[in-house]
């Protein structure tokens, strides 16, 4: 053996071993960022002009104006309702969907169908889905709920489906061996293994839906977002700020609750 194999100098392999490829990627990447910054006219002149306007904008937002409280309250409650209904519907529908989207449980054509739905549901941002549903069903919370449930199903179908794919097959096999039928196998062999994940994702989903429900109102899909949009439109920045504060409080509250619940799930 040569002495080099006894050398005490050790270097970790580069992620990309070939130095030519590595340096090409680094140089090209840097060049692209410089080019891109130029292209979007990120210049100091515009920063200087914009800054006072932003400051003025913030001045007009304080103090927040809660005098339109009944309207704010109505919007908030509607958002909350939308989020709760959409979450409930989607966590129930997520069970068959994610079983369908799990390769180890599903059969071929159900799997492909479920996966196709998940891919489609995940590829549209909520705001785009909301625009489509508002066009189809008119203004109000109904298209909003559909929007939230649709995107939520994409989210749950993917993450819960993957959780199901990663379960221990031995436990499923043991339940099958007792003579349990397909449904009872899901109940005893699969459900206990993914239950903490399911509950965690459901709470997280409520969290996501609550945030989204405050935004999709901007395109007319109900909730507090519409009120926020109107306030900006009428230059009532103090009212807008009041609404923003309420949204922040709700989101933080939800964050708190969801971390508490998830903490309890070991």
């Amino acid at each position: 053996m040569s002495t080099s194999s006894l050398s005490t100098v050790w270097k970790r392999d580069h992620f990309i071993k070939n130095p030519w490829i590595r340096w090409t990627i680094i140089i090209a990447g840097t060049a692209y960022i410089i080019f891109a910054l130029n292209d979007i006219h990120f210049d100091m002149q515009r920063m200087r002009e914009g800054w006072p306007r932003a400051v003025d904008f913030f001045h007009r937002m304080v103090p927040p104006d809660f005098s339109r409280w009944p309207m704010i309250q109505k919007g908030v409650l509607e958002s909350l309702q939308m989020a709760v209904i959409a979450t409930t519907v989607s966590i129930i529908l997520a069970i068959p969907l994610s079983l369908g989207a799990a390769r180890n449980i599903s059969i071929k054509w159900v799997y492909l169908l479920s996966r196709a739905f998940v891919v489609i549901a995940r590829s549209f941002p909520p705001i785009i889905v909301a625009i489509i549903f508002v066009k189809a069903f008119g203004f109000g919370p109904f298209p909003g709920i559909l929007t939230l449930a649709f995107t939520a199903l994409g989210f749950m179908g993917k993450l819960l489906g993957e959780a199901i794919e990663n379960i221990d097959p031995g436990q499923v096999e043991a339940v099958r061996a007792t003579g349990a039928n397909w449904f009872k196998v899901q109940l005893y062999g699969v459900a206990p293994q993914v239950m903490p994940r399911y509950v965690g994702l459901s709470i997280y989903l409520l969290d996501i839906n609550l945030r989204a429900s405050t935004i999709i109102g901007i395109v007319g899909a109900g909730g507090i977002g519409g009120a926020l949009f109107n306030a900006f439109h009428r230059y009532e920045y103090d009212t807008a700020f009041a609404i923003l504060l309420v949204i922040i409080v709700i989101v933080l509250g939800m964050e708190f609750i969801s971390s508490k619940v998830r903490g309890r799930l070991q």
Partner: peptide, 12 residues
Amino acid sequence: MIFQEYNLIERL
């Protein structure tokens, strides 16, 4: 059936 890896439902 009795298994090598016991195959109990761990969370129950």
